[in-house]
């Protein structure tokens, strides 16, 4: 039982990370009808951006308090990913708008490789995994064999806050209303006076900030990052978005948790072969897609966000 609870706690952590990545996929699909395959790798850029900031702070302000360090690390990650994300939107996705969707898909897949290789080749000793610093207090609460770590709880809560903020932005602000309008009917939104390019860039910036958060969260959780981490995260985030019904933000969040649940279930149900948990989870997603091709929260294909 305690083992099961432990698995659940870990599963929730993973689910939050996946949900944050999936939100990006679903937002981009909502406004532009594209799958941005490199989104997982932008998460990786976020983690490396955060790590660079940590190193720089260590060299320049060695005595900086932990709280400030964490904030600066998150800020640097968000900034790095926002810059990459909006540049990608402006100079890769927007020019390809009239191209067949498969071309965009291919272009973003290749971009993902470019991002990975750029980090591998240009980041100091980039081809090896990098230790990611412990930046959060390492208290933990123990009950029998069950451990609840304070840093994980903090990460989970801040992820939840992030999701609530995205929700409020989408539902309560003028920008969010414009994003929804563009997602529903791009031309009608333009006729209302919405600057289409600005909204696309803003959406990519938003998805990128969320991805950056997921990247740093990943680093803080595993205490290790590497140039290829975005590949699996991207595949998982995309799957989660599809499970939830592409274009639906709440579906993507749900999908993230479902995927983590499947992984955890795989690990629990197959204790002799827990290395196969990803195989189990992806296999289940394939089965799920066969049953519900439009995702769990099915909507008419023309309606999004």
């Amino acid at each position: 039982m305690e083992l099961f609870l432990q698995f659940c706690i870990n599963g929730l952590m993973l689910g939050m990370m996946y949900a944050l990545v999936a939100v990006g996929f679903t937002l981009f699909f909502g406004v532009l009808d594209v799958i941005v395959f490199s989104h997982g790798d932008t998460v990786m850029i976020g983690a490396f951006g955060g790590l660079s900031m940590y190193w720089w702070l260590g060299a320049v302000y060695p005595g900086l308090s932990l709280t400030w360090t964490v904030l600066w690390v998150f800020l640097a990650a968000a900034l790095a990913v926002t810059v990459v994300g909006t540049l990608v939107a402006r100079f890769l996705i927007m020019p390809l708008r009239k191209a067949p969707p498969l071309n965009t898909l291919l272009a973003t897949m290749m971009l993902g490789t470019v991002l990975r290789e750029a980090i591998r080749l240009f980041f100091p000793d980039g081809s090896n995994p990098k230790p990611f610093p412990h930046l959060l207090p390492e208290w933990s609460w123990q009950s029998g064999s069950l451990t609840l770590r304070f840093d994980n709880a903090l990460l989970f809560l801040s992820g939840a806050v992030m999701i609530v903020l995205v929700h409020l932005l989408i539902t309560r602000t003028r920008l969010g209303m414009a994003i929804r309008a563009v997602a529903q009917d791009e031309e009608a939104a333009q006729l209302m006076g919405v600057n289409f390019t600005m909204i696309v860039l803003a959406t990519f910036a938003l998805g990128s900030v969320v991805a950056a958060f997921a990247g740093v969260m990943n680093g803080l959780y595993y205490n290790e990052i590497n140039f290829g981490m975005g590949l699996l995260l991207g595949a998982i985030g995309f799957s989660a978005a599809v499970i939830g019904g592409l274009g639906n933000i709440y579906g993507a969040i749900l999908g993230g948790f479902i995927f983590a649940f499947l992984q955890t279930l795989g690990a629990v149900a197959l204790p002799f072969a827990s290395a196969y948990k990803d195989v189990f989870a992806f296999g289940s997603v394939i089965a799920l897609m066969a049953v519900r091709p439009t995702g769990l929260i099915a909507e008419p294909s023309s309606q999004r966000v």
């Binding site: 209303m177 929804r180 529903q184 009917d185 031309e187 309606q303």
Partner: peptide, 8 residues
């Protein structure tokens, strides 16, 4: 065709 935002 009106083009209203049906989900708003």
């Amino acid at each position: 065709g009106r083009r209203i935002f049906s989900k708003m």
